[in-house]
């Protein structure tokens, strides 16, 4: 079933379109990664799908409904947004932050949190492993912990889909993997649809079903990672010569950087696969 259907989308800021002619479908329970160079429009795409950009034209259907006709509340009950981690202006506690995800489900302000609200908040903190941090302030957390809090808030929102903007940025490799493991578990066990904007190709390839490459606001290539990752696409999108090899654990292609004019390290143990 199509969760999101995008046709000929143009979106951006201040009369300045960043994205042009974007068309793709996001199936329910799918894991889609949007990759591309800096400034190619990854974050703008994530925002445009939730109608968060000032400029947006074209068609975006969410569960077959035109998002330009939906209220922000209706969009928020279907799509949860995980923005990039930033310094908090006001220092809310972890629990207060996660509880804000429940806003969309609160019908009356006078009744306070319902039993279901409390259950979902606890569940979201448990799934992301932050229950022990619940009373801490956001400013006291590490980057990885803050990222988990933002994912927990999105989970508390109880939506079928999560849209994440560079969830691995500023995290060490251990945290990067932890976040992607968590996202994969959510997709597999909780049947969530996941869309990530990601700049680290090698990180998202083993986890995603589909990959979209953006370049200068347009889709340059798309498909399952095993098909779409090849030297020609990487050259076209990133203007970079790379070698590809097969990841020994996933069997999927992995990018290997060439550090000295066309040379790759002959000691490299992994098998080099040239798909171009």
């Amino acid at each position: 079933m199509k969760l999101i259907e995008v046709k000929n989308l143009e979106a951006g800021y201040n009369h300045q379109p960043v994205l042009h002619g974007i068309s793709f479908d996001l199936e329910a329970e799918e894991f889609l990664a949007v990759c591309g160079p800096n400034g190619s429009g990854k974050s703008t795409l994530i925002k445009a799908l939730q109608r968060l950009t000032p400029l947006a034209r074209g068609t975006v259907n969410l569960e077959s409904k035109n998002i330009f006709r939906l209220k922000s509340r209706q969009i928020a009950s279907r799509l949860a947004y995980v923005p990039q981690v930033s310094e908090p202006v006001f220092d809310f506690s972890v629990e207060e932050t996660v509880a804000m995800g429940r806003y969309v489900h609160q019908e009356s302000k006078l009744t306070g949190q319902s039993g279901r609200d409390r259950f979902q908040i606890d569940e979201a903190m448990k799934l992301t492993g932050i229950t022990s941090l619940r009373h801490k302030k956001i400013s006291q957390l590490s980057g990885g912990e803050r990222q988990r809090v933002l994912i927990a808030r999105a989970l508390a929102q109880e939506t079928p889909a999560l849209l994440l903007d560079e969830p691995s940025s500023n995290l060490d490799i251990n945290f990067q993997l932890q976040i992607y493991h968590l996202l994969k578990d959510l997709q597999k066990d909780k049947k969530k649809t996941i869309l990530v904007a990601e700049h680290n190709l090698n990180l998202c390839i083993p986890y995603c079903h589909q990959l979209i490459f953006l370049k200068e606001g347009q889709i340059a290539a798309s498909g399952p990672p095993g098909e779409v990752i090849n030297r020609e696409v990487i050259r076209r999108v990133f203007e970079l010569e790379v070698e590809l090899r097969e990841n020994t654990s996933s069997g999927l292609p992995e990018i290997s950087f060439i550090h000295s004019a066309g040379q790759i390290n002959p000691e490299a143990k992994s098998k080099v696969v040239d798909r171009s």
């Binding site: 939730q50 922000s72 947004y81 006001f90």
Partner: peptide, 19 residues
């Protein structure tokens, strides 16, 4: 509660359902 969401920034507030 809406002001709490606004304090997170307009985009995040809207994505959480705040008008």
């Amino acid at each position: 509660p809406e002001m709490n969401l606004l304090a997170l920034g307009d985009e995040v507030a809207q994505s959480l359902g705040c008008p």
